[in-house]
Computed example of a mutant assay.
Amino acid sequence: MKLTVKLVSLFAVLSFVACKEASKKEAAKSTVTQTEKSEYQIPDSWIEKRVTSASNRLNATEAGKVLWGAMEAHGGLKKWYANGYLSFRFNYQPLNGKGIRDSYQTIDTWSNKARHNSITDKNDIFGWDGNEAWIKAKDSTSFEYDTKFWALTPIYFSGQPFVFDGKGVNLELLPQVEFKGALQNVVKVTYDKGVGSAPDDYYIMYINAETNLVDAFKYIVSYPEYFPEGGHAPEKITVTQETTTVNGIVFAKGFKTYWSKPEEENGLGEYITKIDVSDISFSNKVPENYFSKPNGAEVLK
């Protein structure tokens, strides 16, 4: 009888241990599955197809050839996409002290999704999920600027020239200019109607004729919510400061922005904004649903 009780007890213990181990394995399996779901799952064949398409389209025009040369000099479009999610801190500092915008952000360069968090409080976040802009913050003082507009704005500084590879982008080769003692190839970028939130925006890129790196760019802001009756802000010119190479991609470590004044030396008017770019990195993983609106967030109309 005692032996039977012992055997039953032993069986119960072994069954409990087996169940516990099975639960551990299921938990581990669940963790792996969740991790796998968060990986940068862009097949190499998709990247190759997109890069080949961009190469064929761009190299069919003189302006496109200049832009493609800049992409190659900055590390190559294939590496840009294959590197995965891009993260960086972008500290935009108007010299008048108004409208400072400082956030750490992660961008899905493949599909233009973004998530930012405040430098002062990582729980204050905003983003763009590809369809909707959202924000989750303790109060209105967390981000005292238009986060919907700003969600993808920094990548159009730090992501040049790669951000101009898509369809709906129009390129025009303008006459060469000398800028700060270096000859520049000049490419104007415009958009088809309906492309992006501000299709009337334009960029005029100064691409160094010797290095093929982007030395500067002019641009306007025509965001309809700022200009509901049409029009745009005065043209600005942003000048690349030092560069750094991260995972084979050349980035600016900062920019200086001036009012564009063609009559002034190098076309530089008043110096108005200092931008620092730091903590640049790529990763092949983010948490699952990282760019989606989190619980408690507000959708921005």
Rank of each mutant, 00 (worst) to 15 (best):
L7T: 08
A12S: 15
A12F: 13
L14E: 11
L14R: 13
A18I: 12
C19E: 05
K20P: 03
K24H: 12
K29H: 11
Q34M: 13
Y40E: 04
P43E: 10
R50P: 05
S55P: 03
S55A: 11
N56M: 10
N56A: 13
G64R: 04
V66Y: 08
H74I: 11
K78S: 15
K78W: 07
Y85E: 01
Q93T: 13
I107L: 14
S118V: 13
G127I: 03
G127T: 01
S142F: 03
F149E: 12
W150F: 13
W150N: 12
P154M: 13
F179R: 11
Q184T: 02
Y191N: 14
S197D: 15
D200L: 09
D201M: 01
Y202A: 00
Y206L: 14
N208P: 00
T211N: 06
Y223G: 03
Y226A: 00
F227K: 00
G230H: 05
I237G: 04
I237M: 08
T238L: 01
Q241C: 04
N247S: 15
G248E: 07
G248T: 06
I249F: 08
V250K: 14
A252P: 13
G254L: 08
G254E: 05
G267M: 05
G267S: 09
S283H: 07
K285C: 01
A297F: 06
